[in-house]
């Protein structure tokens, strides 16, 4: 598998604050990566460094096996950082023409990318007349101009209204389905969960986890249980070999964590045989959010 980006002990200090601390990870072609981290965890600084706008304090990174300069490599990358930045008095089309000149690509693709983000009929309008959602969509169009090897999106739905968020997500999903490598930084976990195959979790500039989403927490999931006869249910869970531990949650809900693979059907049967009638039974895996909170809390 082709490596697109390699980070080695990348570090950035702002005075006494270490924003990014010896971060190392690889980005492989074809995967969709999510960078997760609370606000101020160093996500944007990390992206800023690999995108040539922030100077690393130490460590290194290399694009495409390191055989080209960073700014030339960036011509093969599409990236949006925070807010969409364009020339306000230029039309969308002229802004994209400028990007084509910088990236040295043919301007004939402009109409095509504007079509992808549904802005074709507004292409002659000044950028400053656009709504935030439209600006963000234009930024995505701009990032797609060069058929990038990787698309980097930093908080692409920040500040958008629900409709705008939905539109951006649909666009991202569509692009991801076409097999493009994507690196998505976000603190919105459901956003990442919906599209990413791999995650990199950072907190205070330190990497906590990097790998496939499903391996982030290699547990067997848990049951959510509810019964009128709560004490009997608890007794059963205490004695059960497959249940590692259980917690009482609100609404008399019991959360029983599995220590080995176990089916909901079997548990239901056992309960019934012990005269415990369940009013609620769900087996599920922890959401990315729960896994993430656990991970960032533990360390």
């Amino acid at each position: 598998m082709k490596t697109i980006l390699k980070l080695r002990d990348l570090t950035k200090k702002f005075g006494s604050l270490t924003a990014v601390n010896a971060l190392s990870f690889n980005i492989q072609k074809g995967n969709v990566y999510g960078i997760l981290g609370p606000n101020g965890s160093g996500k944007s600084t990390t992206l800023g460094m690999v995108l040539n706008v922030v100077n690393p304090t130490s460590g290194s990174f290399e694009w495409f096996d390191g055989n080209m300069t960073t700014h030339n490599a960036l011509k093969k990358v599409g990236a949006i950082i925070e807010s969409p930045n364009f020339y306000p008095s230029m039309s969308a089309e002229d802004n994209l023409k400028l990007v084509c000149k910088i990236k040295e690509v043919d301007p004939s693709k402009i109409d095509h990318v504007l079509d992808i983000v549904n802005l074709k009929d507004r292409k002659k309008d000044h950028f400053k007349s656009y709504s935030l959602g439209m600006k963000q969509r234009l930024a995505i169009a701009s990032a797609l101009l060069n058929d990038p090897e990787i698309l980097i999106l930093d908080e692409p739905t920040n500040g958008l209204d629900p409709q705008g968020i939905h539109q951006i997500r649909e666009i991202i999903k569509r692009i991801a389905a076409d097999g493009m490598t994507i690196l998505l930084a976000s603190h919105l976990l459901d956003e990442v969960e919906k599209v990413c195959s791999h995650v990199i979790v950072i907190r205070n500039g330190v990497k906590l986890y990097a790998g496939p989403v499903d391996e982030l927490n290699a547990t067997h999931g848990f049951f959510e249980l509810k019964s009128e006869d709560k004490e009997a249910l608890k007794q059963l869970l205490d004695a059960h070999e497959a249940i590692e531990s259980y917690d009482e949650e609100e609404n008399n809900l019991i959360k029983a964590i599995l220590s080995q693979p176990y089916e909901a059907e079997a548990l239901n049967k056992e309960c019934f045989e012990n005269n415990i009638l369940l009013t609620h039974l769900v087996k599920r895996k922890e959401t990315l959010e729960e896994q993430f909170l656990k991970l960032t809390k533990n360390q």
């Binding site: 706008v53 700014h71 030339n72 910088i102």
Partner: peptide
Amino acid sequence: TNRTLKQNLIDGLSKKE
């Protein structure tokens, strides 16, 4: 002020260029 310098660099212009 428009932060287009940042965008230019991200798009693949070097600081020297």
